[in-house]
Design a protein around this nucleic acid. Structure first.
Lengths: 157, 157
DNA sequence: CGTTCACTTGAACAGTCGTTCATACGTCAA
DNA sequence: TTGACGTATGAACGACTGTTCAAGTGAACG
């Protein structure tokens, strides 16, 4: 994947540690004694962490893809030239019950990851998020590559 | 994100449905009566779904990122020029207990998403998967963009 | 040594999750 | 209208998850 990671090099020299200002009673605290082992990097790291709401949203999306059934549904819909599939076909090709598929689709719909239309009795579902589509496609490609070829082609970040 | 999605156009004309060959007793089956509503697309979809092991691996990775604490840890380590952080600093900047952070890091380590080195008492953790690093960075960027700017800039897949 | 500190780990608990089962809804054909 | 069918949904159940708490490990230091 050639992720251009601009990370700091390994620090071997000990960093001057910053002590906490007026440390609270040791029984209450569950973090360590030192305020920051490396204050500069903590500052940088802090900027990389979004606020609570954004983290919750992002985590929900990942969690949605963390279930095998939902992941397979999304992968099926993300396949080239598939576009849309009905609940029946999804249940058939995933070898799952229509109920389980419907429940999964409901969850995916709730997060706006899929979209659906009705045509008579049949409900056709399709993906509704380009980012997720891209992530899934790359993820599938990555996992397949890691299994067919030799393993780790992308260690380190 | 401009995900170039090559999906089939919406099908408006009804598709000749393929009936199941010798349908089993209706009480046993939980899928629908029809074998395939759209056999061609099901074939394509099937190719997009990896085998069970690959799906499990991919799902585990997503599930790992689906927890807010672990996601924040990874996001912190994925920030530019951070490289590595110790458990103490992570606990401090995430406002979490050292125990919770250690447990989360253990899980991330188990999936080889992070790597660590020891220097005396301190354990320094860094990301160990370039794909995950990239996905996290793009995810953070996406969520931030969706929150600051107008909302859905990337509907449809 | 013995203490302190950063970190790890196991147990335990409350909360969440995904499935199945039964049922209900709306559509279509007869 | 009646029945069949595709889908949706709520309840319920077992399984899992992430946290806290308490205890433990090994390194540094006096």
């Amino acid at each position: 994947m050639t992720a251009k990671t601009t990370q700091a090099t390994r620090e071997t020299t000990p960093i001057p540690r910053v002590r906490k200002t007026a440390a609270p009673s040791p029984a209450v605290r569950d973090t360590c004694e030192i305020d920051y082992v490396d204050e500069v990097r903590v500052q940088r790291a802090r900027q990389g962490v979004p606020d609570a709401d954004a983290v919750a949203t992002l985590a929900e999306t990942f969690k949605m893809l963390g279930d095998p059934t939902r992941l397979r549904i999304v992968a099926a819909l993300a396949a080239p030239d598939v576009g849309e599939l009905c609940v029946c076909d999804l249940a058939t090709l995933l070898d799952a019950s229509a109920s389980a598929v419907s429940h999964s689709l409901r969850a995916l719909r709730h997060l706006r990851l899929v979209q659906f239309r009705r045509q008579g009795k049949i409900a056709y579902y399709r993906l509704d998020d380009a980012h997720v589509t891209q992530v899934i496609r790359e993820g599938v490609r990555h996992v397949n590559a890691a299994r067919s070829g030799h393993e780790s082609a992308s260690r380190a970040g």
